[in-house]
Nucleic acid binder design. Structure first.
Length: 595
RNA sequence: GGUCCAGUAGCUCAGCUGGAUAGAGCAGCAGCCUUCUAAGCUGCGGGUCACAGGUUCGAGUCCUGUCUGGAUCACCA
């Protein structure tokens, strides 16, 4: 790392020149902006207080010192208070030969420390996955991958919400109107099959509400008192009592849902180390509430309900147990957090959950801290914004949901028709073409979603997202395919890409730009891991692909006259290809050999 | 009303712990396929970084206030 070397020498320089120690925050070393000459820039403004002279004099003194003491610094120039240092070709060449065939370039070996546990997906079993889940799943999976790549031991877990009134609604609707049909008999994916009954319940329930209202019942009152809802509630009670008929039905319907959801997960390319089921864990947490009561952290109201007073933290009072002693969401989550801790003693507990639950997680952390759980400090809520559609919001109640499978189908079809229009895959087998359409459509979708900062609510425009131009997954995939094509042809022609530092010619600016970008990859992956940000990786991959495309268009790599130069450019291309592949892999996007 | 988050080109988004003339893509216009894949490349136009103050050598970035949008403050999960 040349930056470190420069910082060390900068410290020494200031000591020698001005006889002064400097605080680290005054040592500002950054890469030089492309429009200026040089590679690394030292900002001298902060040092003026120490040097007690003007920016030019200070920069000149430091620049001279650097040239004298750091071998790889050849030259410098000064613009205002910026000292731009030029690094020798030699340094870049060394970097290139040392890393070009390093399989682990930009990644670290996974340690066996306490794992980071990352929970994501967390579906309900009454509805298929939709666009919001896609963002969740892609984020969770990618963040896990980025952390692993950075040497962190990671466990991916999923908490399936498989019980509750919503499941009972689907169950009841199927019992009433399902006529013993099954997903197989109707030839429908299991999760959709069950979801359809949930919708059917809702539709009929609304009719019953309307009827009650027209009979003069208050609307709130009516929505709580339909026959359907009462029946569903009684099913829930029976479920909790372990009623065998209800339990059997529940098991059957959930199994349909799982087979459907697993297919969607598989298609999306996400997976888990462990799946938790709420039916197993929903009673946890009550003992924590007891603990809090005895410690005097929680209090009981007259009706018997248990609360935690958070007004000191600027929040409200939070209910933890209902008057009838049953638990609420927070109680369960306290319990599952404890369970997660007991199972893994994680170094960090990450929840990928939408930002509508920010408050919930603030409260969760505070309560755990009050209970004396020091590990609550290590809970991270990886909060992401809602996915909106051009015309409205993405909420399941409002009926404008985009189903995850449908969306992937749509992307697939567009990939197919676009490719056919361009006459891309005329000469390959149907099966190969199918794989490519899959790769491209998923690449487009994943890249489009992951390139956006998770915190922001994003607009998903299905039409624009399938635009394969510009800053998109397919653009990067295309770049990779072209490089692979060059490499194939080089191999066919028996061209050498075996290269040593000695035979690399002088670097031209384009080559240097590419090398500088590649050089950043290890730093980028580390940054991305610290910030848990796939968007950082996506930005890098795009920059690299774009830079390579410009390089590619300026040159005819295979026809280069100087064999050394040709070998170097081929090898450089190969280095770019593997780096692109690795970066895209962190986003869960595979990259084709040809397209 | 309280709390949290966001506001950057017509649109979708970048902008690392404060640094140089705020960047891409899309859309628009103009060029480039006898040369390794044109899903590409090159050029042009497009901005009071919501607004107003402040902090300092220097602010899209930090602080305060205002405006706008969203989320949340349930004995729902």
């Amino acid at each position: 790392m040349i930056e470190k070397l420069i910082i060390q020498n900068l410290q020494k320089a200031i000591k020698e020149l001005y006889n002064h120690d400097v605080a680290n925050n005054l040592l500002q070393v950054q890469k030089t902006r492309t429009e200026f000459v040089g590679d690394i820039t030292i900002v001298v403004f902060p040092l003026l207080k120490i040097s007690r002279s003007n920016p030019e004099q200070t920069a000149t003194a430091i620049g001279d010192y650097m040239i004298k003491h750091v071998d790889d610094i050849e030259d410098y120039n000064i613009i205002k208070g910026f000292l731009n240092l030029s690094i020798s070709d030699n340094y870049w060449k060394d970097f290139f030969v040392n890393n070009k065939s390093n399989k682990y370039f930009g990644s670290k070996e996974v340690d066996d420390n306490n794992p980071v546990v990352i929970e994501y997906s967390s579906p309900n079993t009454n509805k298929p996955l939709h666009l919001g889940h896609i963002r969740n799943n892609l984020l969770g999976w990618s963040v896990a991958e980025i952390l692993k790549n950075n040497g962190t031991n990671v466990k991916k877990v999923n908490l399936v919400n498989d019980r509750g009134i919503h499941i009972c609604k689907s169950m009841l609707a199927w019992k009433l109107w399902g006529n013993n049909t099954t997903p197989e008999s109707e030839n429908i994916k299991g999760d959709k099959f069950v979801g359809d009954y949930y919708v059917l319940f809702d539709k009929n329930n609304k009719e019953q509400i309307a009827k009650l209202v027209s009979n003069g019942v208050d609307k709130d009152e009516a929505s709580k008192n339909t026959d359907l809802l009462k029946e569903a509630k009684s099913m829930l009670v029976k479920w909790e009592r372990d009623d065998s008929e209800i339990r059997d039905l529940w098991t059957k319907m959930n199994s349909w849902v799982y087979s459907g959801m697993n297919a969607t997960y598989e298609r999306m390319g996400v997976d888990f180390n462990k799946i938790y089921y709420e039916s197993d864990t929903y009673l946890l947490g009550k003992s924590l509430v007891e603990e809090g009561l005895t410690k005097g952290i929680f209090f009981k109201k007259e009706d018997g309900s248990v609360w935690c007073d958070l007004t000191d933290e600027g929040l409200d009072e939070k209910l933890l147990l209902r008057a009838d002693g049953t638990s609420v969401y927070m109680t369960q989550d306290l319990g599952t957090a404890q369970l997660r801790y007991d199972d893994y003693t994680p170094s960090e507990l990450v929840y990928v959950v939408g930002n509508e639950q920010n408050y919930h997680f603030d409260v969760l952390k505070i309560i755990l801290k009050k209970l004396g759980k020091s590990w609550a400090e290590h809970i991270t809520h990886l909060s992401y914004g809602m996915v909106e559609l051009p015309h409205g919001k993405m909420k399941s109640r409002e009926g404008t949901v985009v189903d995850a499978d449908d969306l992937m189908d749509e992307m697939y079809n567009t990939a197919k028709s676009t490719s056919e229009e361009l006459g891309k895959f005329n000469d390959i087998s149907k099966e190969e073409a199918h794989n490519l359409y899959n790769m491209l459509s998923l690449g487009a979708l994943k890249y489009f979603i992951l390139k956006v900062d998770p915190r922001k609510t994003m607009t998903f425009n299905p039409e624009e997202s399938i635009d394969f131009n510009g800053n998109t997954g397919p653009f990067i995939q295309y770049t990779h395919a072209r490089i692979r094509s060059v490499l194939r042809k080089a191999e066919e022609q028996g061209l050498s890409m075996d290269i040593t530092k000695e035979i690399i010619p002088q670097l031209d600016p384009k080559e240097k730009d590419l090398l500088k970008l590649l050089y950043e990859y290890p730093v980028i992956t580390e940054q991305a891991a610290n910030a848990m940000s796939p968007a950082t990786i996506a930005g890098f991959a795009y920059d690299l692909a774009k830079e390579y495309n410009q390089f590619y268009h300026d040159l005819t790599i295979l026809k280069e006259e100087d064999p050394n130069h040709r070998s170097f450019r081929i090898a450089l291309s190969a280095f770019v290809a593997t780096t692109l592949k690795s970066a895209m892999g962190l986003l869960g996007i595979s990259v084709p050999e040809r397209m």
